[in-house]
Simulated assay, not measured.
Amino acid sequence: MIKLIAMDMDGTLLNSHNEIGWENLKAMRYARSKGVSLTIASGRAPFDVMNLLKEADIEAHVIGGNGSTLHTLDGKLLGADFLDTKEALEIVGDLTAKKYFVSVSTEHGIYHPENGELWLRQELERLHKPDVRGEGYQRSAKQTYHRNYSSPEEIQASGEGIYKLLVFSFDDQKLSRAREKYEAKHKYAIVSSGSGNFEIMARNVSKGNALYHLASYLDIPLSEVMAIGDNYNDLSMFAVAGISVAMGNADQEIKDQCNRVTLTCAEDGVAHAIYHELGKK
Score class of each variant (00 low, 15 high):
Asn66Gln: 13
Glu160Asp: 15
Pro113Gln: 09
Gly67Thr: 00
Asn231Glu: 15
Ala246Asn: 04
Leu77Ile: 04
Asp10Ala: 07
Asp48Gly: 01
His213Val: 00
Ala80Pro: 00
Arg179Tyr: 05
Glu117Val: 13
Met7Trp: 13
Tyr111Val: 09
Lys255Ile: 04
His61Asn: 15
Cys265Ala: 06
Tyr111Pro: 00
Gly21Tyr: 01
Lys255Phe: 01
Gly194Pro: 15
Asn204Cys: 04
Leu70Tyr: 06
Leu13His: 09
Ala266Phe: 04
Ile63Phe: 10
His186Thr: 09
Glu123Val: 07
Ile58Phe: 10
Ala60Phe: 13
Leu70Gln: 04
Ala215Tyr: 02
Gln143Thr: 05
Glu90Arg: 12
Asp57Cys: 10
Thr144Ala: 13
Tyr100Lys: 10
Ala6Cys: 03
Tyr232Ile: 11
Ser140Gln: 13
Glu55Asp: 09
Leu38Pro: 03
His213Arg: 11
Val102Lys: 07
Glu107Phe: 05
Leu165Glu: 05
Ile58Asn: 03
Val205Asn: 02
Ala141Tyr: 11
Tyr182Asn: 10
Gly75Asn: 07
Ser42Cys: 12
Asn249Met: 00
Ser16Tyr: 03
Lys281His: 09
Tyr212Gly: 01
Gly109Ile: 02
Thr72Asn: 09
Met28Phe: 15
Val205Gln: 02
Asp74Thr: 10
Ala202Glu: 10
Ser176Phe: 11
Glu87Leu: 03
Ile5Cys: 12
Asn231Ala: 15
Ser193Ala: 14
Gly242Pro: 05
Arg179Ile: 03
Arg260Tyr: 08
Thr72Glu: 14
Glu123Lys: 07
Ala266Asn: 12
Leu218Pro: 04
Leu78Thr: 05
Val225Asp: 08
Ser192Asn: 14
Glu107Asp: 11
Gly248Gln: 01
Val92Gly: 07
Tyr275Lys: 09
Lys76His: 09
Ile91Ala: 07
Val270Pro: 11
Asp219Phe: 04
Leu14Thr: 05
Glu199Lys: 11
Tyr137His: 14
Gln252Lys: 03
Ala88Val: 08
Ile228Asn: 04
Ala56Ser: 12
Lys76Gly: 02
Arg133Phe: 14
Pro113Val: 08
Gly11Ser: 01
Trp22Phe: 10
Glu160Gln: 15
Ser42Phe: 11
Arg203Pro: 03
Ile91Asp: 10
